Simulated scan of single mutants.
Amino acid sequence: MRELVYYVAVSLDGYIAGPAGEFDAFPVEGDHMHHLNTRFADAVPTHIADVLGIEPTGSMFDTVVMGWNTLAVGLPTVPSPYRHLRQFVFSRTRGEADIPGEHPNLTLTGEDPVEVVRRLKAEPGASIWLCGGGSLATVLADEIDRLVLKRSPLLFGDGIPLFAPGAYRPRAFEEVGTTAFESGVVVSEYVRRPSA
């Protein structure tokens, strides 16, 4: 069964974006970028990968899941940010008419995210990338098999948390690797501990 991987940038105080969804404070230059763009090439937006000459191979991820607010960051300019992946966008209030123009490989759904992810996990293929945001991550917390956190040396003070407040129940993960870069970015990877 394939994994659901929450791969995301996060500030030192635990935010994945500012209060209005801003993420431009996260550093996109520095020695960490080569590592990330090589290992996680599938997570680079298609239009950016084209410009940078990055070839997403589908070997890490072949599917991405996200909430409406994550998709909305690129609208109306980029209605299908990861055209090279199967994209599932969750919203109970938005419809296809809210996505302008062509949006290949993108499915907007009001289905229960847990049911959709469980279905996707049962299919053959590469890992499934949980792109964001914090509310969707909270809903899918019990389905997350791996966390890859790109911690930047920033304090946001407010914003969208890594996980939105939800029903408290500890979930144990085990660190399997951490790399610190001269840029100050630290990439840490964790896998879910098996239930006792």
Rank of each mutant, 00 (worst) to 15 (best):
L136Y: 08
R169L: 07
G53M: 02
S59A: 14
A72V: 06
P165G: 14
G18W: 02
P56L: 10
Q87P: 04
L36A: 15
G74P: 10
S91T: 11
I54S: 07
A43S: 15
E189V: 02
D13R: 12
R171I: 13
V114S: 09
L147F: 06
G67P: 08
A17H: 01
E143G: 13
Y190T: 10
V44H: 04
I16N: 05
I48E: 15
L130W: 01
G95K: 05
P100S: 08
G101R: 13
S11E: 03
R119C: 09
H103D: 11
V51C: 02
G74Q: 14
M33W: 10
L136Q: 08
Y82H: 07
H47P: 04
V116R: 12
A137W: 07
T179D: 14
P81C: 06
V148E: 14
L136P: 06
R146W: 01
F156Q: 12
E189R: 05
V8C: 04
V186K: 15
G101N: 13
Y6H: 01
I128E: 06
S135A: 14
A126R: 01
A141I: 04
P100E: 09
L85W: 03
F23E: 15
S195Y: 03
A72F: 06
P161D: 10
A43Y: 07
K121R: 09
E29H: 13
G18N: 04
G53C: 05
Y82E: 10
S195V: 03
V65S: 03
A43M: 14
F163H: 07
E111F: 04
S11C: 00
F61Y: 13
T179Y: 07
R39F: 03
E102V: 12
A164P: 10
E143V: 11
V65R: 01
V186S: 15
T107M: 11
E143Q: 15
Y7N: 14
E96M: 06
R92K: 01
L149S: 09
D24Q: 00
H35L: 05
L85K: 04
I54Q: 05
F23R: 15
W129V: 10
L162D: 06
G58S: 04
K150E: 15
E22W: 02
D145F: 01
V114W: 08
E115F: 00
V191K: 11
L71E: 03
L12S: 07
E22L: 05
F40Y: 12
G157P: 00
R83L: 12
G166Q: 07
F181L: 13
P56C: 11
L147I: 05
L120Q: 03
P194I: 09
C131L: 14
R92W: 00
S127K: 15
P161G: 09
